[in-house]
Simulated scan of single mutants.
Amino acid sequence: MYLFISGPEIFVILVIVVMVFGADKLPEIARGLGKGMRQVKDATNDIKREIKNSAEKNDIDIDIASNIKNEINKVTDNIEDYSQPVKKIKDTIVDDITGPIKRNK
């Protein structure tokens, strides 16, 4: 559920709201809440749009997270490229050491 509130808890809250404000005021309260939530959503969208436009105007890359992820992937690939020969040498040495031991048993 939304905000960790279950059905019975919502019902209790609605009963309390009806008792406090009355049934005739509920539509007005709901309209006011809806209007307020819409204004908040519009304001956040405007802020996001302004930040994006300002970043594009000043040639600032706003997609930093994907760039960092790409760089991490490149570094990981480079590390794997360098570590593969070392792993092969290690495996060869381990095989050379354990080979005679396994043959003697």
Rank of each mutant, 00 (worst) to 15 (best):
residue 12 V to N: 07
residue 9 E to N: 04
residue 24 D to A: 13
residue 95 D to P: 00
residue 55 A to E: 04
residue 61 D to M: 05
residue 78 N to F: 11
residue 89 I to C: 09
residue 37 M to F: 15
residue 29 I to F: 04
residue 33 L to R: 10
residue 68 I to F: 06
residue 89 I to T: 12
residue 33 L to Q: 13
residue 70 N to D: 14
residue 28 E to Q: 13
residue 16 I to M: 05
residue 94 V to N: 04
residue 80 E to A: 12
residue 55 A to R: 07
residue 1 M to K: 05
residue 62 I to W: 02
residue 88 K to S: 03
residue 99 G to A: 03
residue 53 N to H: 04
residue 68 I to V: 15
residue 87 K to T: 01
residue 74 K to F: 09
residue 3 L to H: 09
residue 48 K to M: 02
residue 60 I to Q: 08
residue 88 K to N: 11
residue 13 I to Y: 03
residue 76 T to D: 12
residue 78 N to Y: 10
residue 34 G to M: 06
residue 38 R to S: 13
residue 18 V to N: 11
residue 89 I to M: 10
residue 26 L to D: 02
residue 42 D to Y: 05
residue 71 E to F: 10
residue 37 M to D: 15
residue 56 E to F: 02
residue 38 R to F: 11
residue 53 N to T: 03
residue 23 A to Q: 03
residue 29 I to V: 08
residue 12 V to E: 13
residue 2 Y to R: 14
residue 69 K to M: 04
residue 47 I to Y: 15
residue 49 R to K: 13
residue 29 I to K: 01
residue 37 M to E: 15
residue 22 G to A: 05
residue 73 N to H: 08
residue 67 N to V: 04
residue 16 I to L: 08
residue 10 I to V: 15
residue 17 V to S: 00
residue 41 K to H: 11
residue 77 D to I: 12
residue 4 F to Y: 07
residue 82 Y to K: 13
residue 55 A to Y: 04
residue 74 K to Y: 06
residue 57 K to P: 00
residue 45 N to P: 00
residue 3 L to K: 10
residue 66 S to A: 06
residue 42 D to Q: 13
residue 30 A to K: 09
residue 105 K to H: 05
residue 21 F to I: 07
residue 36 G to E: 06
residue 31 R to H: 09
residue 1 M to P: 01
residue 93 I to Y: 01
residue 58 N to H: 11
residue 104 N to Y: 11
residue 68 I to E: 08
residue 6 S to Y: 08
residue 61 D to T: 14
residue 30 A to M: 12
residue 69 K to T: 05
residue 45 N to S: 15
residue 51 I to L: 05
residue 39 Q to V: 10
residue 56 E to K: 07
residue 40 V to P: 00
residue 89 I to Q: 03
residue 34 G to E: 06
residue 40 V to H: 01
residue 2 Y to V: 15
residue 58 N to F: 05
residue 105 K to V: 01
residue 92 T to W: 01
residue 90 K to M: 05
residue 2 Y to I: 15
residue 62 I to P: 01
residue 20 V to D: 02
residue 47 I to R: 12
residue 23 A to G: 06
